[in-house]
């Protein structure tokens, strides 16, 4: 093997690529090593499907938090995805180019706002409003969903914009030349062609919503209870880890690593579902 520039570049890049994968792998191994023995000890059923969380009393049921994470994430997507996708369609297909130049950077700026600021807004503005109009404590699934929905907006919007912008202009012209109206060409052709990019934006946003911690701790209420209404306060998996981390030792500390494993798995499953949705659609056509 010769050490010419070509080879050096190749192996340097390979090392970099490998270290990215390796760090992911190491994190996974570490979490599993710390958390798995605990799961074995307590038993999967008493860990995943029990509703009592009281580490001092030796009760480690995280079912309410799994449900809470799913509700909050789902709610956030319900708010963020349609807004983001609709915004991307509008900016790409209908808005004057000037508007795109102003609005896109503005919304991308949203991504730079620290999550604690979103949380603060939620506590000061949103929670009192929910308390006054819908009842309940205000700090709730709904508050967390709305805040997260806004937080994932830049992700959905900017990736969807790129996906829609990369649809060849010839598709649009092809549809319009066949007598499609502007809107028909958008929903029958452009969105279909940009579908995989749009779904990717939703997957990324979903991961962000599921993993977000600070804003959620501030607005979700943090009560360990299975929610029955969107106005109920909840504690998500991420909030659980962050809240209990400081004074957790022994079993309680292991329980948090195990919570990390569950979070990891939930993200994997959600991504898997989303990816197979793309592939399924692709095969059908």
């Amino acid at each position: 093997m010769k050490f010419n520039g070509e080879n050096i570049a190749k192996y340097a890049l390979m090392t970099v690529a490998f270290s990215a994968v390796a760090s992911l792998l190491l994190i996974a191994v570490f979490i599993f090593k710390e958390g798995l023995p605990f799961m074995m000890k307590v038993g999967l059923k008493d860990f995943l499907f029990a509703s009592d969380w009281d580490p001092l009393a030796g009760k480690f049921g995280i079912y309410p938090m799994i449900v809470a994470s799913l509700w909050v994430t789902f709610g956030a997507m319900l708010i963020g995805a349609p807004l983001g996708i609709a915004g991307a369609i509008f900016l790409n297909e209908f808005a004057p180019p000037m508007m795109m130049k102003i609005i896109k950077p503005t919304i991308e700026l949203l991504a730079g706002i620290p999550s604690v600021v979103f949380g603060f807004l939620g506590v000061m503005v949103l929670a009192p409003w929910i308390r006054a109009t819908l009842g309940g404590p205000g700090l709730s699934v709904l508050a967390a969903s709305i805040i997260l929905g806004i937080m994932v907006l830049p992700t959905v919007l900017s990736i969807s914009i790129d996906a829609i912008a990369s649809v060849p202009n010839s598709y649009r012209e092809g549809a319009l030349a066949l007598g499609a109206t502007r809107w028909q060409s958008v929903y029958m052709v452009t969105i279909k062609a940009a579908r995989s990019g749009i779904i990717a934006s939703i997957i990324l946003a979903m991961g962000r919503a599921l993993g977000e911690t600070m804003a959620v701790i501030m607005v979700a209420g943090n009560t360990v209870k299975v929610p029955h209404a969107v106005t109920d306060p909840v504690r998500t998996l991420t909030a659980n880890i962050a809240l209990e981390m400081a004074n957790a030792t022994g079993m309680a500390r292991e329980a948090l690593f195990a919570t990390g494993i569950v979070l990891f798995m939930v993200i994997m499953v959600l991504n898997g579902i989303a990816l197979s949705a793309i592939k399924g659609k692709a095969r059908k056509k």
Binding site: S170, Y171, E173, G174, V189, K192, K285
Partner: peptide
């Protein structure tokens, strides 16, 4: 058109 535009369907 000059380039065939089969729509993605």
């Amino acid at each position: 058109f000059a380039l065939p535009v089969a729509l993605p369907m």
